[in-house]
Amino acid sequence: MAGMTMEEAQARVTCRREITKRLKEQVIGRLMLPLEPDEIAEDSPLFGSGLGLDSVDALEIVVAVESEFGVEITDEDMQAFRSINTVVDFIEAKQQEKQEEKPV
C-alpha cells in the first residue's frame, strides 16, 4: 500500500497547519493586510497577481520569518519566497537542519 497511514498524515497536517497559521498571522500583521488567515490560499503567489506584494513587503516577510521562527535567511534563500507554502517548506527545512545540528 502506498502513501502514509491516516495517523501519519494527521500528524503531518497538525505540524504544517501550525506553522502555516503562525506565518499567515505574521504576514498579515507586519504588512497590515486587510485579510484574515483563511482568506489567503497557501499556494497563492505572494507577488504579481495573488497577494500583489512588492520587494519592500518581501523584506518585511524576511524579518517576520527570522524573528518568529528563529531562522536565518540569506539572499539566495529569497527564491523560496513565492507562496505561503514555499515559505513554510523553507522554515521546515531550516528547522530540520537545526535539529540535526544539535549534539546527541
Binding site: A2, G3, R16, R17, P45, S83, T86, V88, E92
Partner: peptide, 24 residues
Amino acid sequence: LAWVSVVFDVAGLDARAVSAPLFI
C-alpha cells in the same frame, strides 16, 4: 487532509502533496 507534505496513495503509487509554484 489537503496539506503539503502529506503522502497519498493514487493507484498504488506514492503521491506527495507539494507546494506551488513547482519551480522558478
